[in-house]
């Protein structure tokens, strides 16, 4: 579904992502792991068109999307839940959800998806007219994910959705992601710090280190990989500050 071939990308002359090859098949959850600054967010931003790759190509459903502007990539069905949630804090919860469906005009489909969002995250229905900036961190993450559902995505890019959330919310978000694959038919490329939890629900994974893919495999293989256990899953796993 998504095929990244030899992509290098970065701001200015510094390449944060170097010659990356990555494949996401339809119906998969693929997890992208790596330390802080490994280039995970840069890669997602490059897929979404917020950054132009310096070289390589990105192919979605047989069509090149690299170099396209973000809104055209969204139109193709590639929707990103950005790091830090990207909530429009001066708008209401309802307006945020409406913005998710910005490119759509199928009223019935939008209504249906809104109901699905409320089913998944009933809390959002209670907060509908509240200013989104006043939501708690967990609620904001629900809103960010619900808003992405409103875009009717084919491929969902999620940049650290569990970051800074309480364990309860982490469980909720992880379950939602699993349901996206199993019930909603979304394909998911997930960037996570929480390697264990992510690999538990993922089909395959890639490890990014200073901009390069250093390891890839099925989620099971990665969970059992000793080196990886030491680096990401073990007791002395690096924990992230914020």
């Amino acid at each position: 579904m998504l095929s990244i071939e030899g992509v290098s990308s970065g701001y200015g002359k510094i390449l944060a992502v170097k010659d990356v090859n990555l494949l996401v098949e339809e119906g998969e959850i693929v997890v992208l792991l790596g330390a802080n600054g490994a280039g995970k967010s840069t890669l997602l931003r490059t897929i979404s068109g917020a950054m132009k790759p310096k070289s390589g190509s990105i192919i979605f459903k047989g069509q090149r999307i690299d170099g396209k502007k973000p809104h055209l990539i969204v139109k193709e069905g590639v929707v990103q839940v950005e790091e830090g949630r990207g909530i429009l804090s001066r708008m209401s919860v309802k307006e945020n959800l409406d913005m998710g469906a910005y490119l759509r005009s199928d009223k019935d489909g939008i209504m249906k998806d809104l109901e699905r969002v409320f089913q998944k995250f009933p809390r959002l229905k209670e907060r509908l007219n509240q200013n989104a900036g006043t939501l708690s961190g967990g609620e904001q993450q629900m809103l960010a994910i619900g808003r992405a559902m409103m875009a009717n995505p084919k491929l969902l890019l999620m940049d650290e959705p569990s970051l800074g959330l309480s364990p309860n919310f982490v469980e909720l978000i992880i379950r939602a992601i699993r349901e996206f694959r199993d019930q909603d038919g979304y394909t998911i490329l997930l960037v996570e710090q929480n390697a264990k939890k992510a690999l538990d629900i993922a089909d395959r994974g890639y490890i990014l280190e200073t901009g390069r893919i250093v390891l890839e495999g099925t989620a099971q293989d990665l969970l059992n990989n000793e080196e990886l256990q030491r680096a990401y899953l073990g007791r002395d796993a690096k924990t992230r500050e914020d």
């Binding site: 809104h71 950005e82 990207g86 875009a151």
Partner: peptide, 15 residues
């Protein structure tokens, strides 16, 4: 209003 809050977010929403 979305663009006024964040160009990045607005773009990711299809604006």
């Amino acid at each position: 209003r979305a663009v006024a809050e964040s160009h990045l977010t607005a773009g990711f929403l299809g604006v």
